[in-house]
Amino acid sequence: MSKEKVTRRVFVSWIFLGWTLFLACLGGLGTMLLRYLFPNVLFEPSQSFKAGYPENYAVGEVSLLWKSKHGVWIVRTAEGLYALSAVCTHLGCTPNWLSGEKKFKCPCHGSGFRFSGINFEGPAPRPLERFKILLGDDGQILVDKTKKFQQEKGEWNDPASFLAI
């Protein structure tokens, strides 16, 4: 073997390469660990449901029928129906419909929402969300919770957010 002197340059390059590889491995390992926290398969219930016939809903009333099972209020106005998400936009508690005061009131930090879902008191930063609502082939209302409409983004004008009758 030759007894060539390793130049400073070569030495530094090897050190550099070594550290780079080491850190890259660490990074890879870290990513793997982090990725392990995000499961691929979720066992979560179906996100759409049938909500009966439009005639079942009285004008000017908030229906509590689907609240406990699906977390949705169906509200009937003179023009039609919309599906409000029963999840407070503050931190996710379930507000209560106070029919006397005509408002949704959240018990956790006191946010209040009007009939329309617009927030007006307490800490909630934005209105309740609405879900996609349509009439199925069998004449029943279909609520699809995977598609939501946010008022502050102007999405309540989207025809899918409202079932005109």
Binding site: F38, F43, E44
Partner: peptide
């Protein structure tokens, strides 16, 4: 919703067994 700080904590989009 399927990849954020909340998801890491509760292992899903909704609170449940996970």
């Amino acid at each position: 919703k399927g990849a954020d700080a909340r998801f890491v904590l509760i292992a899903g989009r909704f609170i449940g067994e996970a």
